[in-house]
Amino acid sequence: MVSKTLVVIPTYNERLALPVTLSGLFENQPEVDVLVVDDGSPDGTGEWVEEQSRTDPRLHVLHRSAKSGLGMAYIAGFEWALEREYDIVCEFDADGSHRPLDLGQVLAVARSGRADLVIGSRWVRGGAIVDWPRSRFLLSRGANIYVNAVMGLGVKDATAGFRAYSRRVLEALDLSGVQSQGYCFQIDMTYRTVEAGFHVAEVPIVFVERELGESKMSGSIISEAFTKVAGWGLVRRRRQARDVLARIAARRSAT
């Protein structure tokens, strides 16, 4: 039996790009449901989805009154999915940067049960980025190198926003405690998943620079990620050191 799957798409002024994205998703994965979490887009994105959902039972919309960030939009989508018994919950961008044809391989691993979090990765063998400016390329690559150096998560693309969570991961994590945004939200969720003992897998995807709309990246998002990663890394490294010392002490006491 195919797992009940929901694709969550946060939107803010994505009226032009979203119809293309939805068409591609339903063409490649007609069995999935889609929830658009709209933060009160002035361009009428939420109202357009509402209208389309009247004739397509696979499409749903969650209206939020104000723009409160990517992280909170996804958390709202996760909670909506858990209330409706979805087995797999995916993150996906509205702007065309995530290719619908890549969703199949992400879901194949998620549905196999071999991983609890499956990340569509730009930085594993076979992954690629198309049409990014050098500055954006260096920012993303450098951010992931920094995350691995500081936190040691063993994930090559911890900032990726193309991913699939199993229901049991989202049920186990304290979603109400997640306050991060942007890059940092993805790192935060990866960190929590690894710390909780769940298995993470990465599959290669092709990431395409958006053709419509504007990027939501900002200096505050980058600063938040840099600062919080440093704090999480310190906590994680201290715990790892304590675990090593505890194992050494246990071996000595046993001899």
Results as ranks from 00 to 15, higher is better:
R239C: 06
L16T: 06
G126S: 10
S135K: 01
W48V: 03
V229M: 10
T5G: 07
E14A: 13
L22F: 02
A94Y: 09
F92G: 01
R111P: 02
S253G: 14
G126D: 09
A225S: 11
N144F: 03
E171F: 02
G231R: 13
L16D: 13
E224Y: 06
A108M: 10
I187S: 03
G233V: 04
E214H: 13
P57Y: 09
G71F: 05
A249C: 03
G96W: 07
A158T: 12
M217C: 02
V106A: 08
R168D: 14
H199P: 00
V61Y: 02
S166D: 11
Q52Y: 02
M151I: 04
M189K: 04
R111S: 15
A246H: 11
V37T: 02
F78N: 01
G231N: 13
F226I: 12
G71Y: 06
N144A: 05
L35T: 01
F137I: 09
A149R: 12
G219I: 05
H199D: 10
R167E: 15
I9Q: 05
G142Q: 03
V7C: 09
Y191I: 01
R252D: 11
P19G: 08
F78H: 09
G231F: 14
A249D: 14
A94I: 08
S140F: 11
R242H: 11
A160I: 02
D116V: 01
R54Q: 15
S180E: 14
A108F: 10
A128S: 15
T255M: 10
I205L: 06
R84S: 12
A76N: 10
R58Q: 08
E51H: 01
E195S: 07
R163D: 05
F137S: 10
A81Q: 04
R192F: 06
K216N: 12
A254N: 08
S176I: 01
S166E: 12
S253P: 00
A196Q: 07
A164T: 04
L153Q: 08
T193E: 08
P57R: 11
V150K: 10
A172L: 01
A81E: 05
A143Q: 06
A164L: 10
F78S: 03
G127R: 03
D56Q: 08
A73K: 02
A115V: 03
W123S: 02
R141W: 15
V109Y: 10
G219R: 12
S215H: 03
R141N: 11
G77M: 07
V34Y: 03
D243E: 15
E47L: 00
E211C: 00
H60Q: 12
N148I: 01
R84D: 13
F92M: 05
R251L: 15
K216W: 14
R136M: 15
Q181A: 13
I9H: 04
R251F: 13
G161M: 07
L245G: 10
V229K: 00
T45R: 07
V150A: 11
A110M: 07
S166F: 01
